[in-house]
Design a protein around this nucleic acid. Structure first.
Lengths: 108, 108
DNA sequence: TCAATTGTTCGATAATAATAGAACTATTTT
DNA sequence: AAAATAGTTCTATTATTATCGAACAATTGA
């Protein structure tokens, strides 16, 4: 639980980014981050088990969408806005502009 | 081979759209369509079997990304640009624009 | 009418992905 | 030091997806 892999901006791949954002749970994480700023994993009320949530954070991280910064016993997640915008101008903005509700456990 | 399902604009779902575009083959189809205009399925030089290509066209169609118009024995595929832009402004533009900044590594 | 063309659908298989529980690591608190 | 907290990683299971070949359907052309 020390340092986690983060791709450099030049290693961002569009299919990876789109795949990471195509999951409703991951999309809700990204929307929350965009709306409220950096937050630890545990502050997200996700309708899945802890290990599954961890999996989703990992997908986002490895696609280059979020940065996970260790802080004490937690990880502070933040959107890699600048880098995503630099690599794929307008993409994140367009996705965030499209409103979508947080999925309930029943809806999954 | 008569009429195929096409969702109405209000039924477009962002996760479906993103998932459809997260596959390199489908992304290449969309890029070709954007670049050259409407074309039949057979004019795409895809590295997969005919049935697999058909599957990919179906995913794109059911997500609302393409329209498949029967014409003789073929289907003419076209991007549903206006409707996608209306529902998710800037999304398609950002994705198509990203093509130019994709590094030369690992094509498709 | 017969054959070729175009693409779908079906059935099967292999690969990927989502999910959860349990065990583990690191940190903080008591 | 022990317990609580935060999150990862491992293992397994299930669900979804990609893939292909074969069979099928519709249209076109000989």
């Amino acid at each position: 639980m020390r340092s986690l892999y983060h791709p450099s901006e030049t290693d961002f791949r569009l299919p990876n980014i789109l795949h990471a954002l195509s999951d409703p749970i991951r999309l809700s994480i990204v929307r929350e981050l965009a709306r409220t700023g950096a937050r630890s994993c545990g502050t997200f009320d996700l309708p899945v088990a802890k290990s599954t949530a961890s999996h989703h954070f990992r997908i986002l991280r490895e696609a280059g969408i979020i940065h996970m910064h260790p802080m004490g016993s937690q990880y502070v997640n933040s959107l890699r806005r600048t880098e995503i915008d630099s690599r794929f101008p307008g993409l994140l903005e367009a996705i965030l502009r499209a409103e979508e509700s947080v999925p309930s456990k029943e809806a999954l």
